[in-house]
Amino acid sequence: MATDTLIRPDRPLDLEAVPDRRPRHWPFSPWHFFLIPLALIMLMPLIWSVITSLETASEAQRFPPVLIPKALHFSNYVDAWNSLPFGHFFLNSFLYSLATVAGNLLFCSLAAYAFARLRFVGSNLLFVLLLVTLMVPFQVVLIPTFLIVRHLGLIDSVGGLIVPNLCGVFGIFLLRQFFQSLPVELEEAARIDGASRLGVFLKIVLPLSAPVLATLAIIQFMWSWNDFLWPLIIITSPEHSPLQLGLSMFQGAHVTNWNLLMAGTVMSQIPMLAVFLFAQRWFIQSIAYTGIKQ
């Protein structure tokens, strides 16, 4: 063998003669040539909105856009906060998002458990029907939903935002798939140990589902927080507006205060970012979980 001739105890090791067989180590992978520009394209709108939020009104109006402003006007944030009832907007958005997250965790998990484990007539048909509704665009059910909410007397209220969004088909589907992957023997063991159906659900199934529940919570929070169309339809007064709808007030019929609008937008994204950073551990874990049996 080649190494036998190169490395001999009677001779000092000749390093020059040993060919370097290690692969060359770049500090990055060739993929980065592709991924970094792609990331920049994705980040561009975000960067642009942050820059715009720090410009003067005239800089913000200009085209082509001014990407390096003369000075950073942090006062835009104060102006934006003072020119509209942002406190109300934030409060409404938090109420809307937290209530729908709570509602989805409660109702979706119960429904999903029934679909995953209980045997009842027509359960499969019912589940398929539910899935079919996922394919119906929101615009189609917008008017019927509006009429129902009006009958409930919830037009122009935060309650009107929350009630139609308390339980979503997506959540039922996501949780059902996860529950089905849990070993059924755990639940049988608990039933023999004396737990009721609800006891099994609360003490065995839910604690084991923390990652997927966290995922649903994040997704639902994001949806509610960023929701614009539904609030636009049913909310008319600023004191019941959530953030996204409130921000649109910067957009007048003739003039748009782009710098203030962007300052408001950046502020509105901070809670979303915080939630994601806080829960991303579970989020990623649950994506890794799917399909893997214990």
Binding site: E185, L186, A189, R191, I204
Partner: peptide, 20 residues
Amino acid sequence: LSPRDRDIAMVFQNYALYPH
């Protein structure tokens, strides 16, 4: 009767210990 009312105990092939 439901399993809880039968007062029996079962050992499963895969043990079914509560992982949490």
